[in-house]
Amino acid sequence: MQGIFTISLDFELHWGVLDKRDRQAREACYKNTLRAVPQMLELFAKYDVHVTWATVGSLFADNEQEWKTLLPAVEPNFAEEKHSAYIWAQKNGLQSQYRWAHFAPEEVAMIMKYPGQELASHTFSHYYCLEQQSEKMAFDADLKAAVKAAKKFNAPMRSLVFPRNQINPQCIKTCYENGILAVRTNPSGWYWKPVADGGATWLRRAFRTADAYIQVGGVRTSYPLSDIKVIPGEPLRLPASRFLRPWSPQSELANKMRLRRSCQEIRIAAKRNEVYHLWWHPENFGDYPEQNLQSLEVVLQQYKKCKEMYGMTSWNMGEYVDHFLGKQTESREVRKAEKISQ
């Protein structure tokens, strides 16, 4: 099997930082992000790169009124209110003048029109699986709300990315129960281990930052396809390889070092016939869209070279499901249809 290049994106706008950022202060970033979506799609089409767009389900709504019709039956009661999108919305509102921060149905529809692009789940409310809360059915209800919201786009939610990479075993099982067949997991290094908000030590942060520029901890970023295991009753776990850090005006040398490291890793994965899984947030491109899109094209050009030289191919997360679970998926869908008809 040839090397595989995968990209997954965490598309969330303000839902992803309700507890950390001021909405109005991020207006330019979010508007730039929405303008960058079609530009990214054109680049992915140009280089024939398949991408999973893990999208917060709330973005599927057209406005606050529609959003309220999609709310889950059970809401989480987080120990810290700042983690609840619903409490935030009650206090701050989702008025039409802030549509650019909360809703993006036009961009979502656009994603669906491009070949190789997979619309996937980033939960409905940017749900945090490692934050303390006691509503046992809240995550299940959140996923059901995300599936309901995606029906307007006729998009099955087969893949999922956990917000802030907060992963726990029970949530993984709940994903499978709701039709999720692939989830992105963290890289193997100890400093990528999932933690709750505020749980990252200074040493962990230092290692993660350094890892963007140089090899640290002896962690390999690519892996054989055979490392992905089929576990009954669970979705496939697809480890990430690298977070594509955004362009920074502070140091052109640092920007070049980050890009060079990612390009080298893609080439190594291609030579070894391994998987390389890159991820970022579209919002990461919002502050300096032109420079970030240029950086992205450098990465995609590297993939093109590896495709020509080593036969590397591109898969979105759903295509791993097709490869590993194709027949099982078909049988499961038949059983599901039969159950509904009864």
Rank of each mutant, 00 (worst) to 15 (best):
T6A: 13
G16N: 09
L18T: 12
D19F: 14
K20D: 08
R21T: 00
R21K: 09
R23I: 09
Q24C: 02
Q24N: 10
R26E: 09
N32M: 08
L34D: 01
P38Y: 10
L43W: 00
A45W: 01
A45V: 04
K46E: 13
K46Y: 03
T52I: 03
T52P: 02
W53Q: 06
S58L: 05
F60A: 15
D62H: 00
L70G: 03
A73D: 01
A73S: 08
E75H: 10
F78W: 14
A79D: 09
K82H: 11
K82M: 14
Y86Q: 06
I87T: 08
W88M: 03
K91W: 07
S96R: 13
Y98K: 04
W100Y: 15
A101V: 07
A101K: 03
A101P: 06
H102P: 03
F103S: 00
M110S: 07
M112T: 15
M112D: 13
P115V: 05
L119R: 14
S121A: 10
H122N: 09
H126L: 08
C129M: 13
L130D: 11
E131R: 04
Q132E: 10
S134V: 15
S134A: 15
E135W: 12
K136C: 02
D140H: 11
D140N: 14
D142K: 07
L143I: 10
A149F: 00
K151F: 05
K151A: 14
N154H: 15
N154E: 15
P156I: 07
M157I: 06
R158H: 13
S159E: 09
L160F: 12
F162H: 15
R164N: 12
Q166P: 10
T174C: 07
C175F: 06
C175L: 12
Y176H: 14
G179E: 10
V183W: 04
R184W: 04
Y191A: 01
K193H: 05
P194M: 07
P194C: 14
V195D: 02
A200L: 11
R205T: 10
R205P: 02
A206P: 04
T209N: 15
T209M: 12
Q215E: 14
T221Q: 07
L225C: 07
D227K: 01
I228C: 03
E234C: 08
P235T: 09
P239C: 06
S241T: 06
Q250N: 05
S251N: 13
S251E: 10
N255Y: 11
M257S: 10
M257R: 15
L259V: 14
R261H: 14
S262Q: 03
C263R: 11
E265K: 01
R267M: 01
I268H: 08
I268W: 01
N273E: 13
H277R: 02
W279R: 02
N284F: 10
G286A: 01
D287W: 00
Y288T: 04
Q291R: 02
E297V: 08
K305A: 09
K307V: 08
K307C: 13
Y310S: 10
Y310A: 07
M312H: 00
W315L: 07
N316F: 03
G318D: 10
G318V: 05
V321C: 13
F324Q: 06
K327C: 08
E330H: 13
E330S: 12
R335S: 07
K336R: 08
K336Q: 03
K339L: 11
S341N: 08
